[in-house]
Simulated assay, not measured.
Amino acid sequence: MDKVVLGLSGGVDSAVAAHLLCESGLEVYGLYLDNGLPGADAAREAAASLSVPLTITDSREAMEQYVCTPFAEAYLRGETPNPCILCNPAVKFRALLDEAERIGAKHIATGHYARAENGAIYRGQPENDQSYMLCRLTPDEVNALLLPLAPYKKTEVRALAEELGLPVAHKPDSMDICFIPDGDYAAWIERRGITPPPGDFVLDGKAVGKHRGIHHYTVGQRRHFGVGFGKRVYVSDICPETNEVRLSSDDAAVWRESFRVRGVNWLVPPEGEIVCGVRIRHSRRELPTGTVTPDGDGAIVRFPAPVRAPTPGQTAAFYDGDRLLGGGFIVK
């Protein structure tokens, strides 16, 4: 019987994934990554209910090095990073592979909503596709990967959990940023001893008020400024060099026909320029088609029509139909 190491968080997705893997005839071993916050007890309860052995490993040092520090530094550069995309290849999937090697397991698995087949990753069900989050995985991680929730919608997974009597059937979905449980990333950055100073909101070349620090804002934002401007405005640019948050009263100012990405991770290396689907944020919206021109370790992405707010620090993921080709970080 082949062994598989499953990332078991104590949530409904990973619990149902464990059940499906066991039903498929695999010998399932759970791995919980302890980041220093509550959650291990829920993972133990889920593992016990499924009769799956569980290993708990301390991930705090790796999280700090590969996720938390880069996350905070990106905000100080005026960027808006996605921590899950940072974490997956360097921490979560790396730990799964290490554990698989330790126990002699052939496969690793997670509860992501995407499809993995023959060393390739594909989009999952449109309602809850999470393939975007996997665009920076390494070849070793992809080749070993099983994604048992591929054919399911989230509602179907919850219904199955309830049918199976799993204790996590009605557990709320996990937060977007696991190491910031309250979701207040700006306060988290400040608690690390980093407090970007207030500066100017700039509209049409004129200072029109004071912002609270550039880490509170993202390109395309249109509310929660703490200042009234008498009309709807949008963040069009964040300038750490001048400590300005630039605004526009015209939404067209945040639309772009092209942008550059750095550090592209190609799961399917192109032979040259390609035309493909491009996802610029985790979203259910249909993928716009763009032309991607490799350029050194990055690429230039161009669209036939503008797309809204390609945000520095976020990831652009590339697709050939449903197949994930890779992804890189958007820059100014």
Rank of each mutant, 00 (worst) to 15 (best):
H107F: 15
P151L: 11
L147S: 05
L145Q: 02
G193H: 11
L76F: 11
L96Q: 05
G124H: 00
M133S: 09
T80C: 15
R158T: 03
M133V: 02
M175D: 11
R123Q: 15
I180G: 11
T110I: 08
A109D: 04
A100P: 04
G119L: 08
R136T: 08
K153M: 07
H170A: 14
G165R: 09
E99C: 11
F201D: 04
G78I: 08
N88T: 04
L86F: 13
F93P: 03
P167A: 12
N88M: 09
Y152N: 00
Y185F: 15
T80V: 14
V157F: 02
D173A: 14
Y122P: 06
G119F: 09
I108A: 09
H107T: 06
S131K: 00
Y113W: 10
T80I: 09
R123C: 09
I108H: 05
A120W: 06
G193P: 06
A169S: 14
C135A: 12
E99D: 04
Y185R: 11
C135M: 10
D182M: 11
E141I: 05
K171H: 14
R115Y: 04
K206R: 15
M175H: 13
Q125F: 02
P89V: 11
G104K: 14
E117W: 13
L96E: 02
L134H: 00
E79P: 04
L149D: 02
Y113T: 00
Y122N: 04
N82R: 06
P148F: 07
P126G: 02
I108L: 13
L137A: 03
C87Q: 07
D200V: 05
Y132C: 01
P198D: 07
P126N: 03
R77K: 15
Y185A: 13
G78M: 09
L149P: 01
L164V: 04
A90K: 15
E190F: 10
R102N: 12
A159W: 03
L76M: 15
V142R: 11
G119S: 10
K153H: 08
K106F: 07
K154Q: 05
M175V: 14
I180L: 12
A159H: 04
N128K: 00
Y152S: 00
W188G: 00
L137P: 04
E101R: 15
A120N: 12
K154W: 06
P89C: 12
D173P: 05
L96T: 01
A116Q: 03
C87D: 12
A109F: 05
L134C: 03
N82G: 08
A105Q: 06
P198E: 11
A159T: 05
D176C: 10
G205I: 11
Y113Q: 03
D200T: 03
R192D: 06
E79V: 07
E101Y: 07
P181K: 12
A95Q: 10
E163I: 00
E99K: 14
A90G: 01
E79S: 08
W188Y: 14
L166Y: 03
A114M: 03
S174G: 14
E117S: 14
P181L: 11
A116K: 01
C135P: 04
P198S: 13
L146G: 00
E117C: 12
D140Y: 07
Q130S: 10
P167L: 10
A150Q: 03
P167F: 10
D129A: 00
A100H: 01
A161P: 03
C135D: 04
A90T: 08
F201R: 04
C178K: 07
P89M: 11
